[in-house]
């Protein structure tokens, strides 16, 4: 009995519920593709279409089978040298949405991204200026040059750090820096 229970537990742990996945999602995907032909294994196993350079053959044909495409497909079964260039292009566009050159073409989106990033960053400068004008009080008096000099003079008078610091660099006999 314990043996049986152990086996059931192990099987339940490793088994993927295949039927439940297939019935729930695949039917929904199939409804989405309409009467497009499902011709291959999608990059995630679903009948979907994306132009990707690393997965160039999508699972479904891009266009649904219209009567004129069906005529072309019949013609495609014959000699390809007898097809005109327009028919070949129509066949390509029936299977695929964009060519490699098209889906890899630069979109120019980076210009907008860069522009808006700089615009938003500059907003921070406007906020800082607003704070400076309307919020912050003026800087304290002790930050003026005169006060800073007086502060330094006082530190020298107190002999701050006389061994290897500030006061060690001051010549007290001649009243200047060493």
């Amino acid at each position: 009995m314990a043996n049986f229970l152990l086996r059931r537990a192990l099987l339940d742990a490793v088994r993927v519920p295949v039927c439940s996945r297939a019935s729930s999602s695949s039917v929904g995907e199939l409804a989405k593709i309409g009467n497009r032909e499902w011709v291959g294994y999608g990059f995630n196993g679903q009948p979907n279409y994306v132009d990707r350079p690393d997965f160039p053959m999508p699972a479904v044909r891009f266009r649904a089978d219209t009567p004129d495409i069906k005529v072309l497909r019949e013609k495609e079964k014959g000699d390809w040298r007898k097809l005109t260039l327009e028919e070949k292009k129509a066949l390509y566009r029936a299977s695929f949405c964009q060519t490699f050159a098209e889906f890899q073409a630069p979109t120019g989106e980076w210009k907008g991204v860069l522009g808006w990033s700089l615009a938003v960053a500059s907003l921070a400068i406007w906020i800082y200026m607003g704070m400076k004008i309307f919020v912050y009080s003026p800087l304290p008096e002790s930050l003026s040059e005169e006060n800073q000099k007086a502060q330094l003079r006082r530190m020298l008078d107190l002999k701050v750090n006389p061994i290897d610091g500030l006061a060690s660099k001051w010549d007290y006999e001649n009243n200047r820096w060493k």
Binding site: P56, M57, R73, E76, W80, Y92, A94, S95
Partner: peptide
């Protein structure tokens, strides 16, 4: 591709090889 009569697939594969 010729045997399964899919012209678009052949062109697409050459494009993919170029990429």
């Amino acid at each position: 591709c010729r045997r399964v009569n899919d012209y678009a697939l052949a062109v697409r594969f050459i494009e993919a090889c170029k990429d």
